[in-house]
Amino acid sequence: MRRIVYTGRMPAALPHAIALRALTKVYRGRPAVDGLSLDIPRGTVCGLLGGNGAGKTTTIGMIMGLILPSSGQALVLGADMATDRHRVLGRMNFESPYVDMPHRLTVRQNLDVFARLYGLADRRARIAELAADLALGDFMDRPAGALSAGQKTRVALAKALLNRPDVLLLDEPTASLDPDTADWVRGLIEADRRARGTSILLASHNMAEVERLCDRVVVMKTGRIVADGTSRDLKARFGRGTLEEVFLDVARGTGEARADAAGEARPAAAGDGATA
């Protein structure tokens, strides 16, 4: 595998890559996301944890501008994603299990189309670079629909990195990969972040992955932030040895009691920039 060399630069004037301000989404009277406030500084990796229905996907959808908030704001690189998203869409990208790429187009054709959409001047060179980085060479000319789940994930990551994004949203990026490939992909994400200072929001159920990649972990439940801090902080606060145990405490509703009993601050009130 080649060493990755990136050339992208992050503008210095913007204070936060992502800023959520009392972000709320209500579906049929029920809040899916409830007054979320969160700042993700530039160049950091923030992990977003939560059980099914916690509001992670809705939050990511609002950050992408694909879902309109009921109230509040999702700002990316200073742009309100409900009203001004086209100003920054070329500088961000995402990978999600909820979307796919045209099945009948080859991997090369798919990447070519997205490279054109992102207006890459060096699209052939960039595609070749990513094909080498993500070891896509063996199936570049196969239809995307004929790939294995792991290969599809690698192609989706290639698409997500195509425009050298300043802000990257990753939803379960290693969910269908074998441990070896997953570890390699994590290394790639780390290298990208180190080389270019990419700001990353990572939603994952893989706690080891979150511990390895994330500077900060935000745990959501019923649309609110219920814990926020580094993985070390969270483990200490909940009196647990692993992030998975912290997650289970939160999911089962025992987290707050445990933290209170240990004389710690309530998880929802802790953490930089988070309010529940």
Binding site: L66, H86, Y98, V99, D100, P102, R104, L117, Y118, K159
Partner: peptide, 11 residues
């Protein structure tokens, strides 16, 4: 092909 999200997230 579930590509609508990709397209509307692109420029």
């Amino acid at each position: 092909s579930r590509n609508v999200g990709n397209l509307f997230m692109s420029p």
